[in-house]
């Protein structure tokens, strides 16, 4: 693998008729790269009309990233109780930088985005980040963000993978009869 082939997010753009792959041009933003790829592709007129923002004028207003976030503290949370009357939930928190540290906290449901509340139930997992954002032309702003994790429905392949992993773990466990001849059976249910 040479240096022009590493797995960057920048899509390499073919140069004219040559087979040589050029390195991305410095300073191009993502939009430019996609735009150049688009220009080199034979799209139908309908497809071109279906795309939004492919004029030179649009390029000039492509959003600039000038605000950066700094996370001061992050927690993983697991909901342990939901009180619908009081509209609050209790969660067990683990510090991301120190997983040994566990804390409990109560959060108000009204402070969470409505679309996340459908995920709120005992056992639901979330991330809680506390920090600030600031930009060259933006004042420092503190934030506290809670985002509930979304897990897709278990697929057959996930179950197969879990079974394989469980079987590997099981292979590593040596079971010997206890002195009183009681044999423990290990059963794994999915």
């Amino acid at each position: 693998m040479n240096t022009a082939e590493f797995i960057s997010s920048e899509q390499m753009i073919p140069t004219g008729d040559s087979d040589v792959t050029s390195v991305p041009i410095r300073g191009e933003n993502d939009f430019d790269l996609a735009q150049r790829q688009l220009d080199k592709t034979n799209f139908s007129e309908q497809e071109r009309r279906n795309t939004i923002g492919h004029s030179q004028a649009d390029k000039d207003v492509a959003p600039r990233l000038d605000v950066r976030e700094t996370v001061l503290q992050g927690f993983r949370g697991v909901v342990v109780a939901v009180d619908l009357e009081e509209r609050e939930f209790e969660a067990r928190l683990t510090d991301m930088t120190d997983p040994e540290e566990e804390e409990f906290a109560t959060f108000l449901m009204d402070e969470e985005p409505e679309q996340d509340l459908i995920l709120l139930e005992v056992g639901a997992q979330f991330y809680w980040h506390i920090g600030f954002s600031e930009g060259k032309h933006e004042p420092r702003t503190n934030f506290s963000k809670i985002r509930f994790r979304r897990f897709p429905v278990w697929q057959r392949s996930d179950l197969d993978r879990a079974r394989r992993r469980a079987s590997q773990l099981l292979d590593g466990i040596v079971t010997e009869p206890a002195p009183d001849q009681v044999v423990f059976r290990t059963e794994i249910h999915y």
């Binding site: 939009f31 996609a34 790829q37 939004i52 923002g53 492509a62």
Partner: peptide, 17 residues
């Protein structure tokens, strides 16, 4: 959590490529 509103997304592209 909800589809992002891409009506103002200047970078939105949806083609076969």
């Amino acid at each position: 959590s909800g589809e992002a509103d891409h009506s103002n997304d200047q970078t939105f592209l949806a083609t076969q490529e």
